[in-house]
Write a protein that binds this DNA or RNA. Sequence first.
DNA 1: GTCTATAATGTGATAGAC
DNA 2: GTCTATCACATTATAGAC
Lengths: 205, 205
Amino acid sequence: MSVLPNRDRQAERREATRREIVDAAWEIARRDGLAAVTLREVAAMVGMRSPSLYSHFDSKNAIYDAMFGQAWSLFLAEAEENLERLPAAPREALLDMSEHFFDFAVADLARYQLMNQRSIPGFVPSEAAYAPSVEVMERFIAAMHRLGVTDGADIDLYLALCGGLVDMQLANDPGGDRWRRQLPRVMDMFADDVALPGPPLRRPR
Amino acid sequence: MSVLPNRDRQAERREATRREIVDAAWEIARRDGLAAVTLREVAAMVGMRSPSLYSHFDSKNAIYDAMFGQAWSLFLAEAEENLERLPAAPREALLDMSEHFFDFAVADLARYQLMNQRSIPGFVPSEAAYAPSVEVMERFIAAMHRLGVTDGADIDLYLALCGGLVDMQLANDPGGDRWRRQLPRVMDMFADDVALPGPPLRRPR
DNA sequence: GTCTATAATGTGATAGAC
DNA sequence: GTCTATCACATTATAGAC
C-alpha cells in the first residue's frame, strides 16, 4: 500500500512563493502607489523573470485579488479579536471599534485604497477574496446589535462617520491626528442621536 | 503703423483644441476609470495621432493636471453661486451647502477620484491647477464663519461628515440615495454639536 | 506652429524549450 | 517551475514635411 505524507511539502513551498510575490507587490504599492506595481519589478524582487509569475498567478489582477483577500483576512482576524474584548459601556465600545478601524485604515494608504476604493480600472475582487469583507460586515453588524444599534440606517451612518474621518486624515494630514482626535466627539454625536445610554466620552461644549 | 487684431484667433483655436482633448479624456475616464485614459484613444477621439497631443500638452500628467484644474474651477463657479444664495437660517444653509457638494461629487466618480483622492501614481497637481481648490476652501470657510462656525476643528468635522457620506454613496450605492437621505440628520447632529440656533431639520427620534 | 512618421522604451501576457 | 523569446500595445520623444 502507498504511504502518503501527512504534509504536502510541495504545496507549502508553492504557497510560500505566492506569499513572497504578494509581499513584494505590497512593498511597491506602499512605496509608489497601488497602480505603480509592475510584474517586472515584482518578479525582480523575488528573483524571477516576469513570465515566471504566471506559474503562480493567472494575471496581474489575480495578484491584486490575493492582496485584497489578504488585507481583508487580516482585518477580519483583528476585528474578531477586537470585537471580543469590547468595553461593556456602549459608548466606550463604539469608540474602541472606531479607533481600531481608523488605525488599521490609516496605517497603510495603498491597502486602504485597495480595500475600500475602486482605483484600479478593471479590477473586481473575486468571490473568494470578497468573502472576508462580508464576514467582517456580518460580525460588525452583530456587535452593533449587541450594543443596541439595530436600525440599518444607523449602521450606515456609523460607517460613513468613520470613513469620512479616515479619508480626511489620509488626504489632508497623513501621519498626523487632526481627524483621529475627533473620534470621541463623533462617537458621542452618534450615541446621542441613537439614544445610547451612558455618560458622554468627552465634556460637552 | 501696424494694426494688431483685438482677438488672437490662433490662441483661441489653440485653446479650443486643448479643451477638446481634455473633454475626450474625461469621456474615457468616466467610461473606464481614470487610470484607463490612454493617449492613443484620446488622440483618436479628437482625430489626431497620439504624438500630436504633445503639441498641446507636455505629458499625460499635464492632461490630468488640466482636468484637475477644470474640475475644481467648475466647482468653484458653482460654489460661488451656491454660497451667495444660501438660506438665511443656519441649519438650512448647512444642508444646502452639503447637498450641493454631495450632488456634485456623486455625479461623476472619476472626477471625484481625481479631485479628492490620489489614485494616479506620480500625479501631483500643479500650483495653477491647485489654485481653484484653495479658493473654494477659502470661500467655504468664510461662509461657515458667517453661519457662526469659526473653530477649525468644527470645519474639519463638517468636511469629514460630508466626505464620509459621499464615499459610502459612491462605493456602496452608486446612483442611489441611501446615504444622501441622511444629510438632514447629519446636519442636525453637527448643528446641535456646535450649538447653532434654529429648529431641527428633521423630527427628532 | 502644427501635423505625420517613426522609433526607443516599457508593459502585461503567451508559447515553447528545458 | 523557470527560463528565453516574442507579442501587442501604450507611452514618450524626435525628425521632418507642410
